[in-house]
Design a protein around this nucleic acid. Structure first.
Lengths: 345, 345
DNA sequence: TTTAGCACTCTTTTTTGTCGTCTGCTAATT
DNA sequence: AATTAGCAGACGACAAAAAAGAGTGCTAAA
């Protein structure tokens, strides 16, 4: 479709624009490797690329800026990996050594590391609820009317919550609950903790509704809860595109809508890495941004999703290199030294 | 010091400026209640108020803006309470009805309610660590190498954490730990969980350091951890002062520094409500803002602190009314229906 | 003591002009 | 047929100048 030189011109424009945030002129990219020709020739190529929709002008006599179609082509066909430096590799390795007790923290560390290296904002979220299986449930009486419920999932996450009752409970009751819940739920997806279960326990098993209802309500809540974690919000404000108050406000609005973030990360299942450029984002509010999402897993255990939010001219190459490296590193590390991960044969 | 009319003029200027964010001219406040005189008279008063330092001009022929001294006088002497509407009262009552299982959530609900009503940004934090006493500690074995520690404090908060070990642990060991920690720490401030305790347990009581160290490390971490919670960040961006990119950036930077926020809230002990206007803030970064902090408690139990961050021309009256009402409401509500609060005679 | 009136100051907005950049096109060159 | 040099034209960015508007301080009168 595009001949070699056009590809080269497009690539040069995208990369130059990523670097400078200024419309790229024919002069600016002339004499780059593979473009040893006059500016006039490049202008001709640019005119055609524009006609095809890969680049556009900001005004009639301006330089060119990549269109979303242009970015998309760049990402799909022209992207070169391995833009990660030795220093960065060292920094990442260092960060990932941090000993964590809860796997959830690992996603946050990955998220903050990405943000620090790329200088974009990252947002992270735990694994999707419907892929998590219950490995064990534990009820512990804290005081006569207060109980704690702990749920261990097969991917090593721990969810705990406190449940209060209007009447005293006995150790005996707690033991029965322990047995009953484990018996019923072990190996089931955590989403099974829901109304029907409450109904079953009350109607069929004849438990007191006063006992069961708060348990189900509270456990359901903690199971469904999406903890969205943000990192590096201020960094984007250093970018030249944030000199427009409009864009800045828009961005702050996005960050304030945690559910919107959660939604964004939960969609787009197909691949581990997904790239949404501008209008490709489902959310109207994100149409001036690009988002790269990264499904973060160890072995076959989903550990959550990380999203990188940046301008449309984000350094896709860098972002993807970093993500791939982190993914690799995590799997290398946790292959050996994770105690609680189940041995797979 | 200030005669009645001067007070009235100052009050009018402050309130008008709070409303419009524009320098206030002599014309604008003439004919307000208590100011039934000509603009020339008001100009004379303004000239004197300016000489005394209560108001200032943005340039030689502009209207007047309150100085920080002016705001301070307004807050100390001129503030009228009860600027809260019936609708707002209803909204607050409604929000505070939400049933919470963890007292921590209550501070967040209060915080978000304040933000929604005042349209300023709020930031909240749990109670200061050194006022919290340990009521009970519970260790629960989750798997051979994973234990959960739960700390109940006298003000009804629950802190829990997971501890991992490099070797298997027995139920017996957990029971001993339970007995030992409770015996040693019940009634003590949570800050007692620290190095010296580790030393004592290992050296004197001859516990294995492999067992004790991770416990102390992890519990200390969760005890010291300050969970800063932000609410309504985007709202401030609607204010006219945020049309300056400088201010906007400044603000985003502040929000990104969670420890700064925590510091801010932990200082200023004296009163339950503290007001810091502009330069009165200890933090350089906050010198263009006003902060109102609100120590939130039920009975004599400290439940955390909420800070309201807004422009210097924030609607102090509204903010304070809302806070007072919330405080009252919480105490009314939780006087009766809180099950776990200890009965005081 | 208050007020009407006016000159003066300063900001804001609009207008005008200049400069520089980059394109598209044409005609010449390879 | 592809490339290139050269140039006219378009337009943004910036600065200076001009006009409009808002508010003050002061003076003199009520």
């Amino acid at each position: 479709m595009l001949d070699e030189r056009k590809k080269r011109v497009l690539q040069a424009i995208v990369e130059e624009y990523i670097k400078t945030a200024e419309p790229v002129s024919s002069n600016a990219i002339m004499n780059l490797e593979g473009l040893e020709c006059s500016s006039a020739t490049i202008r001709n190529e640019m005119a055609e690329l524009e006609k095809m929709g890969y680049i556009e002008k900001t005004h009639i006599s301006s330089g060119r800026v990549p269109s979303e179609k242009g970015y998309r082509f760049y990402v799909d066909e022209l992207l070169e990996d391995d833009k990660i430096t030795v220093d960065e590799i060292e920094y990442i390795s260092d960060k990932l050594e941090t000993k964590v007790n809860e796997l959830e923290d690992l996603t946050q560390i990955a998220s903050s590391t990405i943000s620090e290296i790329t200088h974009y904002t990252t947002v992270s979220i735990g694994p999707n609820t419907d892929v998590q299986l219950i490995e064990n449930i534990k009820f512990v009486l804290l005081s006569p009317r207060m109980m704690m419920a702990v749920i261990l999932t097969d991917n090593g996450l721990v969810k705990e919550t406190i449940i209060k009752f209007d009447e005293d409970i006995t150790e005996n009751q707690v033991n029965t609950l322990n047995y009953m819940f484990n018996n019923k739920l072990k190996g089931e997806p955590i989403t099974k903790i829901d109304k029907p279960l409450e109904k079953y326990l009350v109607d069929e098993m004849k438990y007191s509704v006063n006992l069961i209802k708060p348990i189900i309500v509270q456990m359901k809540k903690v199971v469904e809860e999406e903890k969205v974690h943000l990192e590096g919000t201020k960094q984007l404000f250093e970018l030249p595109e944030f000199n427009s108050l409009e864009v800045a406000k828009n961005f702050v609005n996005i960050l304030d809508e945690k559910e919107l973030m959660a939604d964004m990360l939960n969609n787009g299942y197909a691949k581990d890495i997904n790239i949404y450029i501008g209008e490709e984002n489902e959310k109207e509010e994100l149409k001036d941004f690009s988002v790269v999402t990264f499904k973060h897993r160890i072995g076959n255990k989903d550990l959550g999703t990380i999203g990188i939010i940046g301008p449309k001219r984000m350094d896709y190459s860098k972002v993807i290199s970093v993500m791939k490296y982190i993914s690799k590193k995590l799997n290398d590390n946790l292959g050996d030294n994770s105690d609680d991960s189940k041995e797979e044969k």
